[in-house]
Simulated scan of single mutants.
Amino acid sequence: MNIAFYGSSLLSSYWNGAATYYRGVLGELARRGHRITFFEPDAFDRQQHRDIDPPEWAEVVVWDATPEACRAVLARAGEADAVVKASGVGVFDDELLEGVLDQAAPGALRIYWDVDAAATLEEIAGQSDHPLRRRLPEFDLVLTYGGGPPVVERYTGFGARQCIPVYNALDPATHHPVPPNARFQADLNFLANRLPDREVRVEEFFLRAAALLSDRPFLIGGNGWETKAMPANVRGIGHVGTADHNAFNCTPLAVLNVARDSMANIGFSPATRVFEAAGAAACLITDAWEGIEQFLAPDKEVLVARDGQDVAQHLQALTPERARAIGDAALRRVSRDHTYALRGEQVDAILRRELAAKREMVAA
C-alpha cells in the first residue's frame, strides 16, 4: 500500500531522537512491499545535520516550514492508502493533524503515531479543546512508540478507537559491535539531548554519580549541554551522529540510559538508546522504570539503578569481564526478541488487517 507519513525527520537525528525508530519501522515496511513517502519540514537545522541521504526505499519530501508549503504537502494525503500524522513534527503540528484527517481519501487509514505518548497524554489531559483530543475519535488507529497498558488505557479513555504500542527495536545492520574509539573513552557514557523534562533526572543519575566517583572519567554527548555546569571529571562532546553511535556505545566500560520524566512515570517506554546500546553489546545501566524486564533481564542483560548512588555502586562493582558478559547477553536478547524486522512484521499485519476492514466498511 501507499503510505504517506508526516513526521519530524527521516534524514536527521539532530534534535530528533525518533529518526532511527522511523528508519527501522518504515524500512521494514518498505521491504514488505509498501511504498513510503515521508514528508519532513526544513526546520531546526536538521537538513544541515543529516545522518543519511534519502534512502532508496522511501521518497522523502522536504518542505519549507511555511503555511503554503504545509498546505502543498497535505494536498498529497489523498493519494495514499494509509496516512500517518506523527507526534512532535515541531512545526504546524495542529495544521498537519487537521489536514491528514480532512484530506485523506475516504477509504484510507488515518493513523496517529505517537513517539512521545506519555507527554502527549499529559498535554491533552488538561485541554478539552486540544485539536488531538477533539479529533482523536476520527483516527482509525493510534500507534505508540511505547507506554504499554497504561498508555493504551488512557488513549482509549480519550476516545481512541484502538491503541497499539509498537516499541523501539534493533536494526542489526545499523547498530552492532565495533572496535573502540579513543574519542569516546570513559567509564560511563551518556547520550541524550538536553530537554527540560529529563534534566533533573540527568542531574541525579549521571551528574550525581560523576560527583560521587570524581576520580573516574564520564562522557556526555548530545545537544544543549555546553552551558550546563558539570563536575570536572565529565567531558562533553556535543551532538553525536548516528554513524558514531556504535563506537560511542562500544568504547566505555558502561553506558547510561535516563528516561524522560513522562516515560519514567508511565513505564513500558524503552528509549531507542536502550536497543542501540544492547545491539552494540554495551553494558547498559538504566534508570528504573516499570516494565524493564519485558525487554531486558535485570542483573543479567541490564543493570537497573534507582538513583545516582546506585549508578555509582554499579560502576564500582563492574569489571570489564562482567561488563562484557552483560553486553553479550543483551545483544543475544534483542537480536532474538526485539528487532525492527519483528516490529515491521507487526505493523504490516496491523495495516493490512485494518485497511481491509476499513474498505469493507466503506463499501457497505
Rank of each mutant, 00 (worst) to 15 (best):
P149C: 05
V152I: 15
R134M: 10
E203K: 06
R208M: 09
D197V: 07
V142P: 13
Y155T: 02
P196W: 15
F205M: 06
A118E: 12
R134N: 08
L121P: 07
F190C: 03
Q127C: 12
P217C: 12
T174H: 06
P137F: 11
P172E: 01
T120N: 12
A125V: 01
R201Y: 14
L132Y: 12
A119C: 06
P150Q: 07
T174Q: 12
E203F: 04
R194S: 07
L121N: 09
A210F: 00
V200Y: 14
D129S: 13
L188E: 01
D197A: 14
P150A: 08
R154E: 15
N181I: 01
L212F: 00
F218P: 03
F190K: 02
P179E: 09
F206D: 03
V142D: 03
E122Q: 12
N168C: 14
I220D: 10
L195C: 00
G147I: 06
E153Q: 09
V178D: 07
L141F: 03
F158E: 07
A117S: 14
Q127I: 14
H175K: 05
L170P: 11
V178T: 14
Y145L: 09
P165G: 04
G157K: 01
Y145A: 04
G159C: 08
G159F: 08
F158C: 02
A173T: 15
L170N: 10
A160D: 05
P180S: 04
Q127G: 03
P217L: 04
Y155D: 04
Q185V: 00
F139Y: 07
F205I: 10
P165M: 02
Q127S: 15
D129Y: 12
F205V: 05
G157V: 05
D171M: 01
E203W: 13
E199K: 09
R135W: 13
R194Y: 06
D215E: 15
A117N: 11
T174N: 02
I164N: 03
L121K: 05
E203R: 10
L188T: 09
C163K: 02
I220W: 10
V200L: 11
T156F: 12
Q127N: 13
A117H: 09
S214D: 11
Y167M: 03
R201E: 13
A125S: 14
P131K: 06
N168D: 09
G159N: 03
D140A: 08
A210S: 02
R161E: 10
L121T: 05
L213K: 01
A119I: 00
E204A: 01
